[in-house]
Design a binder for these strands. Structure first.
Lengths: 128, 128
DNA sequence: CGGTATCCCGGGTGATACTG
DNA sequence: CAGTATCACCCGGGATACCG
């Protein structure tokens, strides 16, 4: 199952590695947020609506592990921890921004397609 | 919780809508695959290594619902179902391709960062 | 071939409490 | 402030069987 390497969709493909790590909405949102300016933990938690502190911690750890953000601790009392973007992370964030622009430009088309799809499905339902 | 609209990370932001729908690796992989050429169900299942038919079905339904791919049924016996990219889906797939290129170019940096991170963590472990 | 339907399990997630 | 620890839950996803 993991012994193949015959195509771009094989489990060993770099694309798969990357997607396994960062292809979830919280990672992308956190990356975009930190890219715009360095942030502290609770600032991020407040800004990224709906994320729990546990998931935020996990997300930040994963981004840090992949070298996309940096974590720096200032020895104050109480300690203040700041997350900042790395060059590698910034180059990725640039693409995320492109996606943001795309989503804003095309959200109407997507919503229209959704309501169209849902409408035809509800018709099918009423026939059952 | 859903009544806010005060920033780019609010739950109502178009970016959030998009990410909620397509920010998972299976959606992205399926979109890339179908973008390169129209495919049939089992062809996709064979090509996208590791996906189950249940998840593939769910993924294709979601992409179809969002107007990113089209599903056409040929009334043969047995039926043959073909999935193709839409103009909207293609414009998104172009960005996915950009990410693919990026991941290939930067996979080494990420793997290096990972092993560096893991190494420093294992040191911390041994001190406990 | 291209799916649904059903069962079932593991771990991802949220809530809560505690710490340096 | 910035986390870790613990627990309980629930549902995403695999396995299997069946349908048009």
């Amino acid at each position: 199952m993991t012994r193949d390497s015959r195509g771009p969709f094989a489990a060993t493909c770099p694309t798969r590695h990357l997607l396994d790590q960062i292809a979830d909405k919280w990672s992308m949102l956190a990356l975009i947020a930190i890219d715009s300016a360095p942030r502290r933990f609770n600032a991020l938690k407040r800004e990224i609506e709906g994320i729990s502190q546990k998931v935020l911690t996990q997300t930040l750890r994963r981004l840090e592990r992949n070298g996309l953000i940096s974590r720096s601790v200032a020895p104050t009392v109480p300690v203040s921890v700041t997350y900042a973007i790395t060059p590698l992370g910034h180059s990725l964030a640039v693409m995320m921004e492109t996606m943001r622009t795309w989503s804003i430009a095309n959200i109407d088309s997507i919503l229209a397609a959704q309501s169209c799809y849902d409408h035809s499905r509800s018709e099918a339902q009423s026939l059952k």
